[in-house]
Design a protein around this nucleic acid. Sequence first.
RNA 1: GGAGAAGUAGCGAAGUGGUCGUAACGCGCCGCACUCGAAAUGCGGUUGUCCGCAAGGGCACGUGGGUUCGAAUCCCACCUUCUCCGCCA
Length: 424
Amino acid sequence: MLDLKFVRANPEIVAEGLKKRGAQVSLAEFLALDEKWRRQLAEVEQLKNRRNTVSEEIALMKTAGKDASAQIADMREVSQKIKEMDESLKELEAEIEQALLTLPNLPHASVPVGQDSVDNPVMRIWREPPKFGFDPRPHWEVAEALDILDFERGSKVTGARFTFYKGLGARLERALINFMLDLHTGQHGYTEIIPPFMVNRESMIGTGQLPKFEEDMFKVEKTDYYLIPTAEVPVTNMFRQEVLEAETLPIYLTAYSACFRAEAGAAGRDTRGLIRQHQFNKVELVKFATPETSYDELEKLTADAEKVLQLLELPYRVVVLCTGDLGFSAAKTYDLEVWLPSFNAYKEISSCSNFEDFQARRAGIRYRPAPKAKPQYVHTLNGSGVAIGRTVSAILENFQQEDGSVRIPEVLRSYMGGVEYIRA
RNA sequence: GGAGAAGUAGCGAAGUGGUCGUAACGCGCCGCACUCGAAAUGCGGUUGUCCGCAAGGGCACGUGGGUUCGAAUCCCACCUUCUCCGCCA
C-alpha cells in the first residue's frame, strides 16, 4: 500500500510511477475523495469536541445537583448528527482504503522501463546450456520412463495439474528441500520456519495477494482461510501489527511449504509436466530489513538463491524485471531463470523482490530505529530459494543421459542415500 | 463439539456509567542525583495513531455492533487464550 500522505503530496510522482507499470489509474478522483474525507473529518471532530466538553459540564452539574436537561436535549441532537456523519465518513474511508489497496507499488528508480518480459535485461548468465549428443526429452517423458512421476493418477485422484511423486522421484523432491534448507540455515544465516499452509484474509491482504487477486487463490469453504500460494504470506505476516526492536534487524527466515495456486487464466499453458501445478513445494527466503539496507539485502538474497542453482550445477541466468513486468507489490525484482532443454529456453525458478514498505504498511510491520524514536515501517523482501518442482524438472532435463538415466548432482547424493544415477 | 474463566501500556495488575486512559500500584526501560565506579537508594520520564501551517482537536481498554447526553464499565455477536469434558494424529 502506498502512503496516503505521500500520494497526497506527490500525485505527479505517483502517477508517473504507475504509468511506467502500465497501470491506468485516475488520481484526480482519488484526491477529490481524500479532500472530501478530510473536510468531513474536521467537521465531525469539532462536534465530538463539543460533545466531550458539554458531557463533562453535565457531569459537573449533576454532581452539583443542578438541572442539566437543556444540555442533555442539546447533546441528543449533536450525538445524532455525529452518528450520521460517522457513517458517511466510514464509507468514504472504505472507498479510500479500497482504492489504496488496489494501487500497485511504485517501481524503484533503478528498474528499467519496459512493457513486458521481452524487455527484461539479462544481468548475468551462469554456465552455458548443455549440448546433447542425442535428442533430449522433456522431463515428463524422462520421469515416466523412470517411473518416478505419475501424472495420470494425479489427475484421476484429484484433477489436472496434480501429480504423484514415486520412489526416487519423491526422494529427489525431499532431498532438494533438505539440501536447500540446510544451505540457507547452515551457510546463509537464515532461521528455519515451518508455517501454517492456510492463512486468513488479513494475511492475504498484508502481503498484497488480496483484494485484487482473489481468483488466483484456493479458498477453504466455510472458513475465512486461504491455501497459501507461497510461504511468503504466512512468514511475512508473522510480525503483522508488531513493532520490532531495531537490533533484531535484519531478520532472515527460510521456510519450506507446499504452495497452492489456482492458476486462473493459465488454461492450455504448460499443461504437461511439473512446470505449472496447482500444488508444488518451495523453499522460500524472507527478510525484514531497515530501509537503509534493503537494497543490499536484495542483492544478498538473490545471491543466496543463485547459490542453490550453482551447487546443483544448473545453468541459469538472472534478469531484472522491467516496470511493465513487475509484480503488484514489488519495487524491484530479479528473476532467476533455469535452462530447460525441452522449452529450449530459460524458465523462472525464483523471483527475488524488495517490497520496500509496501507490504509493511499493509501489514503494520514496524521497527523502532532508536530507543525513544517513532516506529517506522520495515522493508520486506523475499525470494524463492528455490521452487522445488521446477528444480526437479531442470535436473531431469539437464542431467538426462542417452540411456534414459539421470545423473544426480554431487551435492545431492548424500541426501539421496548415495544414489548417483536414477535408472529405470 | 460441550461447560466455565479471562482479554486494559514492554510485562504483571487496579479501575465495574461522568470528577482527568499520556491509565493508580508493582516490575522493566531511559535520564539525573548520590558514588572513584557499581549496586542499593532518591527524583523525573516512559502508548500509538489520525486531522491541522499552527494553535488545537479526534480516536483506541481483544474485534464489530447496540443502549446512553456520556461506555473500559451495561447489552448482543464474533475472535483469541486458559481450565475441564468429549474426539483425534
